[in-house]
Design a protein around this nucleic acid. Sequence first.
DNA 1: TTATTGCAGATTGTTGACAATTTACATTTG
DNA 2: CAAATGTAAATTGTCAACAATCTGCAATAA
Lengths: 274, 274
Amino acid sequence: MQKPSARSLSRPRPVAVAVATPEPARPGATERTVGDDHPITLLQANSLPTLVQRELERMILAGDLAAGEQLREIEVAAMLGVSRGPVREAFRALEESGLVRLEKNRGVYVRQISVAEADEIYEIRAILDEFVGRRLAETITPAQVRELRQIVTQLEAAAANNDIDAYLAANVSFHDRLVALAGNAKLLIVYRRLVNELHLFRRKTLAQGGTLPASTREHREILKLIADRQSAAAGRALHEHVMASRSRMHKTWTVQDEGPELPGSAARRRRAAK
Amino acid sequence: MQKPSARSLSRPRPVAVAVATPEPARPGATERTVGDDHPITLLQANSLPTLVQRELERMILAGDLAAGEQLREIEVAAMLGVSRGPVREAFRALEESGLVRLEKNRGVYVRQISVAEADEIYEIRAILDEFVGRRLAETITPAQVRELRQIVTQLEAAAANNDIDAYLAANVSFHDRLVALAGNAKLLIVYRRLVNELHLFRRKTLAQGGTLPASTREHREILKLIADRQSAAAGRALHEHVMASRSRMHKTWTVQDEGPELPGSAARRRRAAK
DNA sequence: TTATTGCAGATTGTTGACAATTTACATTTG
DNA sequence: CAAATGTAAATTGTCAACAATCTGCAATAA
């Protein structure tokens, strides 16, 4: 049996949830809470391990930490001004999300994605994106079309300027937004994880030019099919687009002679070089 | 520049990788390593946090720890005979894999899956399973068909005996094996994560009878289509099967009046009841 | 009575110290 | 000289103590 006092004791804790329509601020004094970006809320929601995890994730995805590089607990702790405990917890979380690899008593390394693994991820992405295209073509609103069109415009501008970084950002943004608008929150989580892992791989391969025009055209075409509510065609186009990206990746990869490194060899070489 | 001694120093460490064809044991004395289940190898590969994580995962999926239940660091540490550090690391990993929820300064709770979330997961599973069906129908071997047929037989036996636990086990085994045979290792990882999260939900809903015959029939039909190499039909059948499971879940859920509990309320009530 | 405030116990967050393991290098041995 | 062996430094694994926060209840006041 539940004591009546128990429920009333649990204070209203501000929770960060992704909602399509933000609640309007109510003027009632007792109901008011601070915003999600208020220092107090941030302090309540984020512990040191979470912060460390997020910072490392950012650095890995930004390329500040190269794939294969070793992360030393002490160094990371000193860099972020915390002790080793939170760093270790962050490592555990990052391992589960596929960004680092833990080897007992040997260290943690930024994960390396092999071509075979990247292939598998592209294959999964193709399936998921196909579903997203079909679903979105059935549910999309004019406002959403405008938003996506804007991203495609940025994409084209970046391609015209040969600005690889901007192109990559807009590209990720476009697909992420597509999945988000499909309205399946769990799918978005799964999708982002896959994209993150692919980032570990893409960084070195996407620096090449020549394929941007084709890729850009495909994005414009996909958006058009979705806006025209051509469900099946939009799904097919997205599927093809992802698989084409995969082929482009393959092409640039086989050009390079650089094979996948053995675990830890990069760090070992780096240390020996000093 | 790489020192020649560096590479030779890295000893051959036994790594557990899922390979389709296991390497034959070589008689060369210098090349011999101990098996993956040897105590030394186990000690090298498993740290305390990993062990704690695995044990908690087992307990959660087995239902020993109910959804919504609070996990106290000290209790878990005492139960497994370790200190709080490894337990905290295990919690972080379990959070990332979606089995527990961490609230800063308040505790960690076995996650509760809402009907809406379960819906989303079923939807993703339907997509992935459809792909698995199509792919498998193109690549399956007679030996694999025999293996799957055996699982379906177990499934039918469990259904005939109304043995819910055995049915659930065979059901999971069938689908897991299907995905595994599809030959995309990353997909298997993604898929298992989703199935695990669904477990948090299914435990209470699947106790009902009446739907077993239909589900059993569908499994047999799916296997037949795959064995007959009817790619598209197998994919469709698997998609429909998952969505039918979703409907069955819905049906049994709406019968129950029990709504989803608020975070921590179960633990609070349990403590108040003592 | 009912809402507010203060307080003690329980629980989590963080840190620093110590133990175990690995790694790189020097030494020895054939 | 090459291979094996011993050793010290660096790094990770684990633990226990302390700090910060939360929870539930009692005391207080309107």
